[in-house]
Simulated scan of single mutants.
Amino acid sequence: MAIRVITFLILNFAALGIGGLFTGTGVTSDWYNNLSKAPWTPPGWTFGAAWTTIMVCFAFYMAYLWPSVQNKKLLVSLFSFQWILNVLWNPVFFYFQNPLLGIIVISSLTILVGVFLFKYYSTLKSQSVFILPYLLWLIIATSLNAYILIYN
């Protein structure tokens, strides 16, 4: 179990790190600071704390799920697609400053994480709680991206 958790921690935080490279000064840029943002936008420090918690929980979720799933090829495909979408959103939104493509990416990621929850709930049961922070945060993040898209 420990090896699986560590493996998924490395993969998850690699996605955050790569995505973060493309964020650069995006959060402090004039473009982002001049956007009309949703009134429910959390303070900046929340994002780091949330993503750290999410990726730790998701590592445990995947570590529990891995030995329980027969179709490893499907699981690897779903995880890989999730990983790519997770990495992709930062450059799309911050580097290319494209909220429309950003909403497509983050909505796809939200749906995919929902697929994980519902597809594998019968396999993991109560351990499915580990994916809930990811899904809930993505719902919030999608709403923030949508607000920016609509009001700017």
Rank of each mutant, 00 (worst) to 15 (best):
W89R: 06
V76C: 12
L85Q: 02
W83V: 04
G114V: 00
A141W: 09
I148V: 08
L109H: 01
P91L: 12
L16E: 01
Q82V: 04
F81R: 00
T25V: 12
L135E: 08
F60E: 00
I131G: 11
S126Q: 10
I150K: 02
L75P: 14
V56Q: 10
P43V: 06
S29M: 02
I84C: 10
N90H: 07
F94M: 12
F8C: 05
G44N: 12
G17C: 05
S80C: 13
A38S: 15
N33S: 14
K125I: 00
L135F: 14
Y64M: 06
A59Y: 00
V87R: 08
I140Y: 15
L149R: 03
G114R: 00
V56T: 12
P43A: 05
L135P: 11
P43K: 04
S68D: 11
W51P: 06
Y32I: 03
I111G: 07
A14Q: 04
P99G: 07
S68L: 13
D30P: 10
L65T: 01
T110Q: 06
G19L: 09
I103P: 10
Y120W: 05
T53S: 11
N86M: 01
L101S: 13
K125H: 01
F96K: 14
T52Y: 04
N34A: 14
P99R: 03
L11E: 07
A38M: 15
K73H: 13
S77M: 10
F47Y: 12
T23G: 11
V129N: 06
Y134C: 09
W51D: 04
I111H: 05
I106H: 09
V87M: 11
Y147V: 02
L136A: 14
N12T: 08
V115H: 00
L135W: 05
S29P: 04
T7G: 13
G19A: 06
C57N: 01
Y120H: 08
F79S: 11
S36V: 15
L144E: 08
Q127A: 07
S126Y: 07
S68I: 08
G19M: 07
T123S: 11
G48T: 05
Y134H: 06
V92H: 13
I106G: 10
P91N: 13
G44F: 03
A50C: 10
F58A: 09
W45V: 03
I103V: 15
L78A: 02
P39F: 15
Y147G: 02
G48P: 04
L85V: 02
F47R: 07
A59M: 01
Y95I: 10
L136Q: 07
N86A: 01
N145D: 14
Y64L: 08
L9E: 03
I54N: 05
N12E: 07
F130G: 01
L74G: 12
V69G: 07
W51I: 06
L136C: 11
L21I: 12
V56S: 11
I150T: 03
G24I: 09
G26I: 04
T25S: 15
T53F: 08
F58P: 03
F118H: 02
I140A: 15
L35S: 06
G17F: 07
N145L: 09
I103M: 15
S122M: 03
S143N: 14
K37N: 13
A15T: 05
G19W: 02
S122H: 06
F130S: 00
V105L: 13
I84L: 13
A15C: 04
V105P: 12
F13S: 03
I103H: 09
G24F: 09
T53W: 02
N33A: 14
G102A: 14
I18F: 09
L109Y: 00
G102I: 11
A49W: 10
